[in-house]
Simulated assay, not measured.
Amino acid sequence: MKFQPLGKRVLVEREEETKTTASGIIIPDNASKEKPSSGKIVAVGKECEDVEVGDTVVFAKYAGSEVSIDEKKYLILNLEDVLGKLK
Rank of each mutant, 00 (worst) to 15 (best):
M1C: 05
M1Q: 02
F3C: 12
F3M: 13
Q4A: 10
Q4D: 13
P5C: 06
P5Q: 06
P5Y: 06
P5H: 05
L6D: 12
G7Y: 05
G7A: 09
K8S: 11
K8Y: 05
K8L: 03
R9N: 15
R9G: 02
R9L: 11
R9E: 15
R9S: 15
R9V: 05
V10D: 01
V10N: 01
V10S: 03
L11N: 04
L11P: 07
V12H: 07
V12Q: 09
E13Y: 06
E13T: 06
E13L: 15
E13P: 01
E13K: 15
R14Q: 14
E17D: 07
T18H: 13
T18L: 14
T20F: 13
T20R: 12
T20A: 15
T20Y: 13
T21Y: 05
A22G: 14
S23A: 15
S23M: 07
S23I: 12
S23V: 11
G24D: 13
G24W: 10
I25M: 11
I26S: 12
I26R: 12
I27L: 12
I27M: 02
I27Q: 00
I27P: 01
D29K: 08
N30I: 14
A31E: 14
S32F: 07
K33H: 08
K33L: 13
K33P: 05
E34K: 15
E34P: 08
K35I: 01
K35S: 11
K35R: 09
P36T: 13
P36R: 07
P36Q: 08
P36V: 09
P36S: 12
S37D: 14
S38R: 14
V42M: 10
V42E: 06
V44H: 00
K46E: 15
K46R: 12
E47N: 11
C48R: 02
E49Y: 10
V51W: 13
E52D: 11
V53T: 04
G54P: 08
G54M: 04
D55F: 05
T56C: 10
V57C: 03
V57I: 15
V57T: 05
V57R: 00
V58P: 00
V58L: 13
V58R: 14
F59V: 05
F59A: 07
A60I: 03
A60T: 07
A60S: 11
Y62P: 00
A63N: 03
G64S: 07
G64W: 04
G64R: 03
G64D: 06
E66W: 01
V67G: 01
V67M: 04
S68K: 08
I69H: 01
I69R: 01
I69S: 00
I69A: 00
I69P: 00
D70N: 14
D70W: 00
D70E: 14
E71D: 12
K72I: 07
K72E: 11
K73M: 04
Y74I: 00
Y74T: 01
Y74H: 02
I76H: 04
I76F: 10
I76V: 15
L77S: 02
L79V: 10
L79H: 02
L79G: 01
L79A: 06
E80H: 06
E80A: 06
D81Q: 08
D81K: 01
V82P: 02
L83W: 04
K85Q: 09
L86K: 10
L86P: 03
L86F: 10
K87D: 14
K87Q: 07
